Amino acid sequence: MAFRGPRVWLWRWRRNPLKRRTDAVEAWIVLGAWVITVITGVLAGLAATQSVENGLARERAEWHRVDARLTAKAPGKVTANSQTASGDQVWGNVSWTAPDGSRHTGQVRVGPGSPAGTTVPIWSDRQGHLVTRPAGVAQAHVRASLIGVLVGLSAAAVPLVGGRVLCGRLERRRLDLWDTEWARFGPLWGRKTR
């Protein structure tokens, strides 16, 4: 393993006679890209988390449990297990009354062979449309946090990639300048001086 020497902090901004202007520009681009990456990621993640939590809280407030009734016997046979797994359930037609008094129908998962008229708990929004069960408070926090992290990482990738692209262009420009200087001074190295 090669000896690298002591670590020098802020080496990009130290005075050095060999440092070019593009080196200083690259140093500021790297710093700016990292600062913008962190700020963008944190702000986007927090905004997404808050938005998802607000949406899920609104669902918990507006969606209500309603008792629906099977309109026809559910297909299949009644099993000996009274507790059926969701994989053992079948689709059954149900009807329910919305808070405004209107009648609605839809399909939900019920136990196989359930007789017509069986009460089935469902979830409905204010308009009486069939919805899924809203997420609990703990589920909402976990879901909002995961979405916030994903959105934050995705948003942070944009300035990070942009900074890398700019640094790559500076590197190509620096290599082109070196090629130009080498083409000018390289042939002079073969001459003998007295």
Results as ranks from 00 to 15, higher is better:
27 A>T: 14
28 W>A: 12
22 T>M: 09
91 W>A: 13
84 T>S: 02
69 R>F: 09
56 L>E: 11
67 D>P: 05
53 E>G: 10
59 E>A: 11
48 A>T: 07
63 W>G: 00
134 P>M: 08
143 R>H: 07
113 G>W: 08
148 G>P: 01
82 S>C: 03
31 L>V: 15
76 G>C: 09
110 V>L: 03
85 A>C: 05
86 S>L: 13
103 R>P: 01
26 E>T: 14
144 A>F: 07
143 R>V: 11
96 W>R: 09
37 T>M: 15
147 I>N: 04
99 P>S: 05
116 A>W: 00
53 E>H: 12
62 E>H: 07
32 G>C: 06
111 G>F: 01
63 W>D: 07
37 T>S: 06
126 R>E: 15
138 A>S: 10
81 N>F: 01
116 A>N: 02
85 A>F: 03
111 G>W: 00
53 E>R: 11
115 P>F: 02
44 A>G: 03
117 G>M: 07
95 S>H: 08
69 R>N: 02
83 Q>W: 06
72 A>T: 13
93 N>W: 06
58 R>P: 01
103 R>E: 13
130 L>D: 01
30 V>F: 09
66 V>W: 02
62 E>R: 07
94 V>L: 00
27 A>C: 10
62 E>I: 14
141 H>D: 12
32 G>I: 01
123 W>I: 05
139 Q>S: 08
126 R>K: 10
68 A>E: 04
122 I>L: 02
42 V>S: 08
78 V>N: 03
101 G>R: 08
126 R>Q: 09
52 V>P: 01
35 V>D: 04
47 A>E: 01
50 Q>V: 11
103 R>H: 00
74 A>P: 00
79 T>P: 00
137 V>E: 06
141 H>F: 03
146 L>E: 12
98 A>S: 11
24 A>D: 12
29 I>Y: 02
146 L>V: 13
131 V>S: 05
40 T>W: 01
141 H>I: 10
115 P>N: 10
84 T>C: 07
136 G>H: 02
40 T>Q: 10
47 A>K: 03
49 T>H: 06
27 A>I: 12
122 I>N: 06
50 Q>S: 15
40 T>P: 04
118 T>Q: 02
140 A>V: 10
78 V>W: 00
73 K>G: 03
112 P>W: 05
29 I>K: 00
24 A>C: 08
36 I>C: 10
47 A>T: 08
85 A>Q: 09
55 G>D: 14
56 L>D: 05
34 W>R: 00
77 K>G: 02
67 D>R: 04
56 L>S: 05
142 V>Q: 04
71 T>K: 05
121 P>A: 11
65 R>W: 07
43 L>A: 15
32 G>N: 06
96 W>I: 08
109 R>E: 04
35 V>K: 00
60 R>A: 08
79 T>N: 01
109 R>M: 10
102 S>K: 06
51 S>D: 12
133 R>I: 14
108 V>A: 04
125 D>A: 04
146 L>D: 07
54 N>I: 11
23 D>W: 09
90 V>E: 13
88 D>I: 04
103 R>I: 09
77 K>Q: 12
28 W>N: 04
121 P>D: 12
122 I>C: 06
148 G>F: 00
37 T>I: 01
43 L>V: 15
